[in-house]
Design a protein around this nucleic acid. Sequence first.
DNA 1: CCCGGATGTGTACATCTGTACATATCGCCG
DNA 2: CGGCGATATGTACAGATGTACACATCCGGG
Lengths: 179, 179
Amino acid sequence: MARRHDPERRQRIIDAAIGVVAARGIAGLSHRAVAAAADVPLGSTTYHFATLDDLLVAALEQVNAGWLADFGRWVDELDGDAPAADDVLRLVADTLAGDRTRVELEYELYLAALRHPRLRPLAADCLDEMARLLARRTGDLPTARALVAFADGLMLQHLLTGRPFEPDALRDGLTAALV
Amino acid sequence: MARRHDPERRQRIIDAAIGVVAARGIAGLSHRAVAAAADVPLGSTTYHFATLDDLLVAALEQVNAGWLADFGRWVDELDGDAPAADDVLRLVADTLAGDRTRVELEYELYLAALRHPRLRPLAADCLDEMARLLARRTGDLPTARALVAFADGLMLQHLLTGRPFEPDALRDGLTAALV
DNA sequence: CCCGGATGTGTACATCTGTACATATCGCCG
DNA sequence: CGGCGATATGTACAGATGTACACATCCGGG
């Protein structure tokens, strides 16, 4: 029974799980698929993550942390001259123009929280943390929360429809809706 | 082989499928689960809907149609005195205060479109149709699209966090973000 | 140095799934 | 009223899955 000592294995399994979700969706996540992707035996995935939920939790934790780190950096680079809504529109445009697969993966895991009780606190924390980070820029939390919601909705709308993103029209539309 | 003539069976199967998704999520949707819920034999579900995708498509079509009908009625009852954003905030508040299970079901099916190619056009059409309906009130499509995105994001945020909904703070926040 | 617990491995089992299919039964149209 | 196509039914099969478990191997602390 050849065996290799592998201190990073747990982490590699998480990475493989994220890869499986990216490739086949949450529906395609299984201990066996992850084991194959990580090139470890089946028993190894069940040892480190006894249930599939454990794997999902670990995957979402890692994806959220990555996103929040990027988001925090982005917020800190803002100069605060333009209206905050314009900054957010630029963020959405950049995100949609970037690695589409990554965005879809993040949203799939994130939205799975609607159904999976153990994922919900993670998604909720991620939302709260985004608002907290964005509040550095807007100065207050309610404004930040409104903008986070707007960004989320825009992201979904364009992921689903594939329609070209038009920041100016959206900004003007939003302004018009408030009078 | 006792058999009953049952002209409404196809419809009952769709209703049962929606019920199964509401109860166990899309992950729990199977021909057998639907057959049990509709009280028909397995072969009957596979006859009317050869693949699970066919069932999903029929379910989302029906759920979307129901939501759009409600949404259209709601739009037509607006008087147009307040800013459109306030109308939308009221809609979100009412929806969140209503049947939570129904909202979660609608979002689960709707968001599944991110992964299921055959659901995507349905979700995209639903989004477009909502914007078209709301444009009756706002007068133009970009404004309506911005508001639909805002409403979607708010809905998700509150479904995920369970935080109390505060329309005034959100409205003021949005206004502040635009200057 | 040595032993106990952590880590790794292979396998087995019961369960559920999609799907196909042969057969039975009905409604309707000519 | 006869038959044909649509509808209904039960069953079978191959494959995938979660999970448990017995056993092997390694590492680090006493």
